[in-house]
Design a protein around this nucleic acid. Structure first.
Length: 586
RNA sequence: GGGGAUGUAGCUCAACUGGUUAGAGCACCGGCCUGUCACGCCGGAGGUUGCGGGUUCGAAUCCCGUCAUCCUCGCCA
């Protein structure tokens, strides 16, 4: 029999004293005193103490004595104020308790594989018993936040006239980008659907249809290796607008960003957000998504380095490499010789063959390579970094890519270890004017930096013919604390420019027509100028929940190898199923 | 595909350089207890040290292989 609840377990206060109530929930803890039995009853709203007193009868007490952790029960009783001095300030409901008069056990439970209110078990176990893991209040709070983030996105965009439209999950595979997840067609032998990497092309088609302002909270699929912040399926807030330039899209998104910052970050944002040129970001921070909660800027040191006798620097110059560095305030004291070996090893994982370190002292520099720096060269270095005694200068001599990667990662690590920022603050900025293309040496052709339908900056159009890698795009990323929170572009709605870009990407007109015919046809049939942006929904939730791991904000996530430890997916299927799909499996 | 970390009781962890019968807290089982809320007290059960080899008088500990989870490089327009 169901004892229908009149209240939740997080609801009862002094105001309810004397009322007859019914609660439903899980046994969070039990305390048996012989003559008196206490049960903490838990649901997603909180915990309420239930007491079984002798007055309720021996039968009921005996029944209560059988309860164990995680039994699901219904309880009927009367709300009573706790005895004076016996209140529990840790509970919202701690001023009262429910004196039980009836107990129904809906379901017993074996001893759970881990304690719901105990220490966090290892993740393998958590994922195997995810339905139990999700009972933990910490995780429940994340999903409440996730819901609220979605509500805010829908509300703010709807207020601005954006329409939510759904697009297909079963689509077709297109070249470029990530590896597709494929779904075989039963009706059409050897033909496959692809799950969308994003609703990119569909939302452009919606613009051609005249929908003007679109959004969707869309599931996306990419068959690539996972990371702490990457899952094979994840969720984007996908947005597209017509009759806009890049500034219009950023401006349109800022009220939403400000609403989220206020509601979930507790911060009143000043708009417009800062715009940072891609080129400047790479030069000053070595990254297209720098964490701007702290400065710690990179400096070019080529002119100073060439005054040294240091062979590594000379060779770098001959190879056309760059010599760049940064200066960590107070780093000399913080990092021992052994720590510095650790930093060198860390830099090596990003391809740096070495790391020059110099400890700034009153009169000179300390470090194994300090002897190569003559006093006047040291003076220039001090000046370049505005270095103080006790600072640590780190220098990498390598290619543009390696110096950027190694130093930007060192920058992030040093800032964290030297506590150069408040962990719980947020910094929002747009990084703009990304390159349109980059040279792919493996494929021996240009590849799209963002995607093949990105509009170049008007002032760079002439470079398409002469120096394509210099062409900048109408592309913009929202960077929050060193993470890409959102990214977008203005799309190419001009068939002539589009075919030039296809040619650079190594696509013949015939190939382009075959792969993207439906889009090209749409673009020829009255496509408005349009562009958009997509936010990482999971990432926003992670950020505001203070998580470092995307799995903790996805209800049923996959492991790093893409398996679901709870359901066993991916699993084998019946030979009959394969036969229907015209698939032979090895 | 490469690199790194971890794997010991149901859970969280311990066990110095290889050395007695692999321990503790929580959970679990039995008993006592009328005001607890990390209840307390008494007693108890619980181990293929991930798995498979090897070295050794002796392996949780050392070596090889393998599996799983996590982090990371490549990859991810």
């Amino acid at each position: 029999m169901l004892l229908k609840r009149t209240h939740t377990c997080g609801e009862l206060t002094k105001e309810h004293v004397g009322q007859a109530v019914a609660l439903n929930g899980w046994v969070d803890a039990w305390r048996d005193f012989g003559g008196l039995v206490f049960i903490d009853l838990r649901d997603r709203y909180g915990v309420t103490q239930v007491v079984f007193e002798p007055e309720a009868g021996a039968d009921l007490q005996a029944q209560a004595r059988e309860l164990r952790n995680e039994y699901v029960v219904g309880i009927r009783g009367t709300v009573a104020a706790r005895l004076a001095g016996k209140e529990n300030p840790k509970l919202k409901t701690g001023a009262v308790e429910v004196r039980a008069v009836e107990l129904v056990v809906y379901n017993a439970s074996p001893t759970p594989p881990f304690e719901i209110n105990g220490p966090e078990p290892n993740e393998e176990l958590r994922l195997k018993y995810r339905f139990l893991d999700l009972r933990r209040p910490d995780l429940q709070r994340v999903f409440i936040l996730r819901h609220e983030v979605g509500q805010t996105m829908r509300r703010v965009l709807s207020e601005q006239g954006f329409l939510e439209v759904e697009t297909p999950i079963l689509g077709r595979s297109t070249p470029e980008g990530a590896r597709d997840f494929l779904v075989p067609s039963r009706v059409h032998a050897s033909h496959f659907y692809a799950l969308p990497q994003s609703p990119q092309l569909y939302k452009q088609l919606l613009m051609v249809s005249g929908f003007d302002r679109y959004f969707q909270i869309a599931r996306c699929f990419r068959d690539e290796d996972l990371r702490a912040t990457r899952q094979p399926e994840f969720t984007q807030l996908d947005v597209e607008m017509s009759f806009v330039e890049d500034e219009d899209v950023m401006t349109a998104m800022e009220p939403l960003i400000a609403a989220m910052a206020k509601q979930f970050g507790g911060e009143e944002l000043r708009l417009p957000l800062p715009r940072l040129d891609y080129h400047d970001a790479m030069e000053r921070f070595g990254s297209d998504r720098p964490d701007l909660r702290y400065a710690l800027e990179l400096k070019d040191l080529a002119d100073i380095a060439e005054q040294t006798e240091f062979r590594v620097f000379q060779m770098a110059k001959e190879a056309g490499h760059r010599i760049r560095g940064l200066c960590a305030p107070g780093g000399a004291e913080k990092y021992s010789r052994k720590d510095l070996d650790g930093l060198t090893e860390f830099a090596a994982t990003f391809g740096a063959k070495g790391l020059v370190w110099l400890k700034v002292e009153a009169e000179t520099f300390a470090g194994p390579t300090a002897k190569f720096f003559k006093p006047e060269v040291q003076a220039q270095l001090r000046e370049r970094f505005d270095a103080k005694v006790g600072d640590l200068i780190l220098i990498v001599a390598d290619s543009q890519a390696v110096t950027s990667q190694a130093l930007s990662n060192l920058r992030a690590r040093l800032a964290a270890e030297l506590k150069m920022y408040e962990p719980k603050t947020f910094h929002y900025s747009w990084v703009v004017r990304f390159p349109l293309l980059h040279w792919d040496a493996e494929e021996n052709r240009y590849a799209a930096e963002h995607h093949p339908f990105t509009m170049p900056l008007a002032e760079d159009l002439h470079l398409l013919d002469t120096d394509p890698s210099k062409v900048r795009a109408q592309a913009y990323d929202l960077v929050i604390n060193g993470e890409e929170g959102a990214g977008g572009t203005i799309r190419c709605h001009d068939p002539a420019i589009q075919s030039k870009i296809f040619a650079l990407l190594g696509l013949s007109p015939e190939q382009a027509e075959e792969k993207f015919g439906f889009l090209l046809s749409a673009l020829r049939n009255g496509a408005p100028p349009h562009g958009g942006v997509a936010f990482g929904y999971d990432r926003m939730v992670m950020l505001y929940a203070g998580l470092t791991n995307i799995r903790d904000c996805i209800a049923f996530p996959k492991t790093a190898k893409g398996t679901d430890l709870m359901t066993g997916a991916p699993g084998l299927v019946e030979p009959r199923q394969l036969k229907e799909l015209h698939i032979r499996s090895s």
